[in-house]
Design a protein around this nucleic acid. Structure first.
Lengths: 212, 212
DNA sequence: TGATAACTGGACTAGCAAGTCCAATTACTG
DNA sequence: CAGTAATTGGACTTGCTAGTCCAGTTATCA
């Protein structure tokens, strides 16, 4: 009854309306990345996006609905930002390139902000179950290419047959999230780099001698 | 000028006063673990601790001051909860016992709550610099025994001389934090277990043949 | 072109939350 | 036993915030 809004209305959406909606989500995403979802007021969002209250409530049922839209938006943005590296995680070299891109992106943000998805997850996972569901989906979607790449490696013989791609992928995502959290806390990308290096070293230790 | 409060007052603190202050921090810590710091109102804290507004503002300068006290409290509680395992991280077996204790504790909390310190860090690291400083200290304090244990292992010859205890410890803490975040999101301790298993496996890969 | 629907502006409400204030009570100290 | 300091209760103020409402404008389409 909440997401119905965004589904039904999607059909009756003018180009202008879609643009307005997008502007709201983009502005909200930026603010929520900096301050968190709870600390971001709707008035802030309106000011930043140059819209009015009635517009916001025309496109979103309530603040939680907007928050879910922001979660989805950030998940998409992350995947977009990490391409094409995200689709080439079927080798140690590919993993290294992905790592480099992530660390560089974190450094580019002046070490501020942490993970756009992880920060929201941390704040929202304990609340509304519907939102938690969206978060789970988004993490799964992000993790999928990694799991796929590792599966390719194992099936190709680059990794030991005992290697569990699903477990590996989940552990690597955990290292990434934790690294980003510590990086945000210390205002340094060092923890992130170390966490990812460890994760990749672990994959390396599972690699077979024959590079297939 | 904020922490002066807790320092100067500490001298003029009656037993009853200390008890009241502790009751406030404990109640606040519990609520903030569940809902986050921003989402926890002072009125909630008062109700949960059976105190009044004037008591809260007698012992704490403002909400941020209380939050910092909660951060320190959680850091202490974590270390307390993880002892004695936290002081025996100078072997693979010790690391394994620590891992088991952490996973069990997470499971015991019905997979709800995440890391008492990590959740606060995520929410607060982007805000008040003073609070971020406290968070950095707390993480460092928590990480110290781990770094010390790994250093012992390397110096003893159980780990390769190339192993960097500081980098290892930081990476392991990242895995722990990320694992807890994903565990909270998925309401399952599986991501935590996998993250820690990966971290320990990495240490294992750095172990020398001779068990010293 | 006229009707219907999408879109927009912004004032308004109701409730909540941080922080203030002061009077009253309890404990320490000489 | 004063007298001073710590402690406590809780009403009150002030400002903000999510959400409502309605009047008005712009687009679509038959």
């Amino acid at each position: 009854m909440d997401d119905v809004t965004s589904v039904q209305q999607a059909a009756k959406l003018t180009a202008r309306g879609a643009a307005t909606k997008a502007r709201i989500v983009t502005a909200a995403a930026e603010l929520m990345l900096e301050r968190g979802a709870a600390a971001t007021t709707l008035d802030d969002v309106l000011a930043a996006s140059g819209t009015s209250k009635s517009q916001l409530y025309h496109y979103f049922g309530n603040k939680d609905d907007l928050i879910r839209a922001v979660v989805r938006h950030q998940a998409q943005r992350i995947q977009q930002d990490q391409r094409p590296e995200l689709d080439a995680l079927d080798s140690l070299a590919g993993l290294a390139r992905w790592r480099d891109k992530i660390v560089a992106a974190q450094a580019a943000h002046d070490q501020v902000g942490g993970c756009p998805l992880g920060s929201l997850a941390n704040e929202l996972a304990g609340g509304d179950p519907q939102t938690r569901g969206v978060l789970q989906e988004c993490f799964a979607e992000w993790e999928a290419p990694l799991r796929a790449g590792l599966t390719v490696m194992r099936d190709r013989g680059s990794l030991s047959p005992e290697a569990d791609p699903a477990a590996l992928a989940e552990a690597i995502m955990a290292a990434l999230q934790g690294g980003l959290l510590l990086a945000k806390t210390h205002r340094s990308s060092r923890p992130l780099a170390r966490a990812l290096d460890m994760a990749i070293a672990h994959v390396h230790s599972l690699a077979t001698a024959s590079p297939a």
